[in-house]
Every structure is written in C-alpha cells, then in structure tokens.
Amino acid sequence: MRNLKKPWFAKGLYIILFFFLSPFVMAQSPVTVAVFNESTSMPLSPPKIGPFHPGVLTGSDITLYESDRNKTYVSINISYTFHKKLYQAITIGLNLGYDYKMAYGGSLKTGIGIGYMHTFPVREIYSFQSTEYGLKKAKGNSRFIPSVSFGIGQRFSPNDFKSSELFVQQQYWLEIPYSPGFIPNMSHANTILGAKFP
C-alpha cells in the first residue's frame, strides 16, 4: 500500500509560477502553453508512446528577425515534469528558435536551448548519516540541460503572422550530470503539444 502526501515544495511551485507568469499577463509578448510527455530516449529516436511522464510548460518569446519565410526568436520558458518513479522537476530554459514559414500557415520549427533543471525525488530518500540510513527531506538535485528541438506549427489564421498557432515538437535534451560513476549524463526527449497566443 502506498501513501500519498503533498510535497513540501508544492507551495513554492505555485509562488514561482505566479511570479514568473505575472509579467506575461501584463506585457504584450506572446504566451506559449504546452503539455508534454518526457521519456528517457536516445537523441533523434522516435517519440515513445508510454509510459506517460507528463509535464506542463509555459513561456514567451521575443522576435529577433522576421520575414515572409523566416523567423528567428528567443524564448524563455518554465516547465514542470512529473516522472512517477524517479523525480519531479522544475525547469527554466532559454531557447534560440527558427521557424521556416510555409504555405497555408504551416511552419517547420527548430531550436537549440540551454536550461537549468531542479529535480526532486518522488520516492522517499534514505540518507546515510554517520553509521546508518535514515529518512531525509529531499533538497533535490541541480542539472544543466542543453537541448535541440524539431517540430511543425500551424497558424489559426494562415495569412496573419501574429495569429495564434498550434505546434508539436520533439525536444531532445541531456541531463548533466545524471548518476556520477554510473551513467554520467542521460539523454531524454519531450514530445510537446502546445499553442502560442499573441
């Protein structure tokens, strides 16, 4: 039988989200919201269907250059990931994105990014203290996460570059470090379904 309890940092998550999101509400930057499934995957491997390790993401971006065919932009986002057996994580990422605009409001997307991820275990942690193991409140682990992503998008109004857009993306990212002395770094993938609103 497994007992469930609310994590001590749940309130912290809401506070972080509130402060992060507030500027977006006020400002004129577009807002991105997305849900995704995280998997432990090799780079460029096809998306994995299961099991489901869900996550939510929000962010915004600033356009650096835009023409009829091309758009480059910098985006910042924050996400929350829940892996039932290993961890939950809050990630803050900075991405450099490029869109190639096609006919009928479609686009091809790619990007590279860097981010900081803080993971918290979802299982109880037993810490070795002087001579024996005892339960310990987790402070979590810090991670550096470079990423690369590929995807497609579709604007709601094909002729309006400022229109809302639906997109799917496959983001491959490295977790550095992972398990020192065992597996130094671990590769992951997020399969993302999202929308961007002006």
Partner: peptide, 8 residues
C-alpha cells in the same frame, strides 16, 4: 500533477 506527487 502535484496532488499525486510523492509516494511513501
């Protein structure tokens, strides 16, 4: 998501 976060 958070409501089902930590299991003992």
């Amino acid at each position: 998501l958070n409501s089902c976060a930590v299991s003992e």
